[in-house]
């Protein structure tokens, strides 16, 4: 037992009671149901932006890896000319792949944040707000997308500095943003689902490490599907990263792509991811 705090304070004559609390006495009216998910997504994205504004270190360190991929891997393989890119310089071919890869790397470890929030009690409190679990997961997924979007912009600028001729057509860039958001929503939900299963940070790190490389190499980010062995083609066909890269390449470089299919697959993947993560979120609430 510790020392008893001295004296019961008179309930009314307290320093904190001084300000008029009147506006705090009425509970805010509930919004209609359709309003809730977009409002929560907005709130979560805003928090992500506020955090980035307070601490930009992450932005800078995150730019190192894609820069290395473009500078070292890209420049070298441009010279080797070992990969058939259909007439496009290899660095141009690679740039959309690196955008997709770096966005995925951010999203795939987003589950760590959920576990951290769970251990620190933040998640508990979020779950007690009038926010359906699916809306909370969607909010988190798009918050991860905001980070990935900033990352994509950084890589885009880096690539341009390295002399890659990427499209600056605003409509195409808008398409790029949608693709990056949807794909990060999927990968962050994948990560949150795994978090809901493994429940600890260490195990999530392990699983994350184990799946990022297969996802990356089992996609068309570095080389076209045509040069893959058959079994790897099968992997690529069910890998949302491949569809993301295909769409980004089509939009930014102008290579032949399957945009409607890509958008459809990414949309379905994001929806499936959100559903799975919302179902598994309950395990984290316990």
């Amino acid at each position: 037992m510790s020392v008893a705090p001295a004296g019961r304070p008179p309930a009314s004559a307290d320093p904190a009671a001084a300000p008029g609390l009147a506006p705090l006495l009425t509970a805010p009216r509930a919004r209609p149901g359709w309003w809730v998910p977009p409002a929560r997504v907005g709130a979560m994205c805003l928090v992500e932006l506020q955090k980035l504004r307070h601490d930009r270190a992450e932005l800078y360190t995150r730019a190192v890896q894609p820069a290395l991929w473009l500078l070292i891997f890209g420049e070298t393989f441009t010279r080797i000319r070992a990969i058939p890119t259909g007439g496009v310089p290899y660095l141009d071919y690679l740039a959309p792949g690196i955008i997709a890869q770096s966005a995925m790397f951010i999203a795939i470890f987003y589950g760590i944040m959920i576990i951290w929030e769970r251990d620190s009690g933040v998640l508990t409190k979020l779950l007690v707000t009038p926010t359906p679990r699916a809306a909370l997961v969607t909010g988190k997924a798009f918050a991860a997308g905001i980070k990935a979007l900033i990352q994509a912009a950084v890589v885009l600028v880096l690539a341009t500095l390295l002399g890659v001729a990427l499209s600056w057509n605003p409509l195409r860039l808008l398409g790029v943003a949608v693709v990056v958001l949807l794909a990060s929503a999927f990968f962050s939900c994948l990560s949150m689902s795994i978090a809901g299963i493994v429940l600890t940070r260490d195990r999530l790190m392990g699983v994350g490490q184990a799946i990022t490389m297969p996802l990356f190499f089992g996609s068309n980010a570095l080389y076209p599907v045509d040069v893959m062995p058959d079994w790897l083609r099968a992997v690529s066909a069910v890998n949302p990263l491949s569809y993301q890269v295909d769409a980004l390449r089509g939009l930014l470089v102008g290579t032949p792509s399957h945009l409607p299919l890509d958008f459809l697959v990414l949309l379905a993947a994001a929806a499936a991811g959100i559903t799975a993560a919302s179902c598994l979120l309950g395990r984290l609430a316990r």
Binding site: A27, P28, R29, A30, R31, W35, V36, A39, R40, G42, A43, L46, V47, Q50, K51, H54, D55, D119, S120, G121, V122, T124, K125, L126, V128, T129, P130, T131
Partner: peptide, 26 residues
């Protein structure tokens, strides 16, 4: 609800922490 753990987000300001919950409660 105030859980047992310290649940404020350390990487936001006090005001941002409170504003988040204002938004979440519409």
């Amino acid at each position: 609800y105030v859980p047992q753990q310290l649940s404020a987000d350390a990487s936001l300001t006090g005001r941002e922490n409170v504003a988040l919950f204002a938004r979440l409660f519409d």
